[in-house]
Amino acid sequence: MRFIDMFAGIGGFHLGMEQAGHTCVGWIEWDKFARQSYQAIHDVEGIWNASDIRTVRASELPRADCWCFGFPCQDISVAGKQKGFTAGKRSSLFFTVTGLIRDLEEEGRPSYLLIENVKNLLSINRGFDFLKLQIELDEIGYDVEWSVLDSAEVVPQHRERIFIVGHLRGRRTQQVFPIVQGNREVNRREDATNTLTTRYGEAQGSGSYVVESEPPQVNQIGNISMSSSFGGNPQVGRVYGTNGIAPTLSTMQGGGQEPKISITVSNVARIRKLTPLECWRLQGFPDWAFKRAKQAGLSDSQLYKQAGNSVTVPVIKAIAERMKLP
């Protein structure tokens, strides 16, 4: 399939879709540093692109079978002001995308929409925002399915995100959810969130995610006193072990907010931050992608931020493999 990568970031959608055999025909991203990484990582020479989706006209978009987008979540995330995706200036860009679809004749509309956002989209404003999203997609001709997937099933990072697939009525698209691996349905945990069944170590290109040891652990083993320097927020001072699953990566803006792990070197324990490369690995990016971004001149602070803002590549790949047209 041909796809357009909107709110593209560093191209987590691009890489996952490409690994599943699909082809990028266009991308949109406004952040200059993310664009710098995107162009360094992906082969985008001659591919249509734009920097601001608000200035794009439907007539200039290349024809595509799928539009991929994780619209901004700052107005939805539990870490933000939670204005909602209709009232918030950034998350309401969802309606900019649907407006472009409204401006297209039916034959020019994508058969699939692949949408990602934080899990809180389901419950913010008592669920009314998610209902508005479904109504909007219904009005422009799309039937929807969705699932909450945890990245911890394909990379060693606990990261729950909602994925929404829109199917244009009248097109022969394929149902995506639930994700099935090895002839069995996805596991259902006690908290009722769906998870992929591909485990760490089985995911393509996984490998070792922390240089000295195993992936960082979600189980907290301590807290360093510097947390008081960040407004008393204990999260930034938490220290994790070295076996298991890492906490959800954030944009990690501001010194000292990167996840911290305790490792043993020559029988002596020490605490250190995860490196930018390790954070990219936790999002499923191959090392060559990180190296291209680093060589393009990106600072460590930008590389941390870009990892936290990205989608998890193997999750996108698992979904994209289920998206087919006759």
Rank of each mutant, 00 (worst) to 15 (best):
S228N: 14
N183G: 01
R188M: 14
G207T: 07
R159P: 03
L168G: 10
N219R: 15
V218Q: 12
F177R: 03
V211H: 03
Q217D: 15
A246H: 04
G182N: 13
Q235F: 11
S225F: 05
G231Y: 04
G166L: 09
R188G: 02
Q175G: 12
V186S: 14
T242G: 01
S208D: 07
Y200R: 06
N187S: 12
A203E: 07
N219Y: 09
T193F: 10
H158R: 14
G232E: 01
G244D: 07
H158G: 00
R172S: 13
G244M: 06
P156C: 11
M252N: 04
I224A: 07
Q253E: 14
Q174W: 00
S208C: 11
I164H: 05
S250H: 00
T251H: 02
V239Y: 00
G170N: 04
N233W: 00
V239C: 05
R189W: 03
Q157Y: 08
T197C: 09
T248V: 11
R172W: 05
R189T: 13
R238W: 05
V180D: 13
P247E: 02
L249E: 02
V239M: 02
P156G: 13
S250R: 14
I245C: 03
S213W: 06
A203R: 03
F163Y: 15
R184T: 13
S206I: 12
M226I: 12
Q174V: 15
R184D: 05
V236A: 13
R238A: 13
Q220A: 14
R169K: 15
S227G: 05
R199I: 08
S213G: 12
G182V: 04
V186W: 11
L196W: 06
L168W: 03
H158W: 11
N223F: 08
E214A: 10
L196Y: 00
F177C: 01
T197P: 05
G207A: 04
G232H: 00
E185Y: 07
A203K: 04
L249I: 02
Q217R: 03
V176C: 13
G201M: 10
V176I: 13
G166E: 08
Q217W: 01
R159K: 12
D191T: 05
T173H: 03
V180F: 00
E190M: 11
Y200S: 13
G231F: 02
G205S: 04
D191S: 09
E202V: 08
S228V: 11
V186C: 13
F177L: 05
S206H: 11
E190W: 07
N243R: 06
R184G: 02
T197H: 05
D191Q: 02
S225I: 06
P156K: 06
G254R: 04
R184M: 06
S229W: 04
G232F: 01
V239F: 01
S227Y: 15
V210N: 00
S228H: 15
L196T: 03
V211L: 11
Q204Y: 09
G237N: 06
V186D: 12
V211W: 00
P234I: 10
G222N: 02
N183D: 15
A203P: 01
H158M: 09
I245G: 00
Q217C: 15
A203L: 08
P215G: 15
N219E: 14
G182T: 01
N194I: 02
Q175S: 14
I179P: 00
A192L: 09
S250T: 15
Q235T: 10
Q253M: 15
G170W: 08
I179Y: 06
E212Y: 06
N223T: 14
V211Y: 08
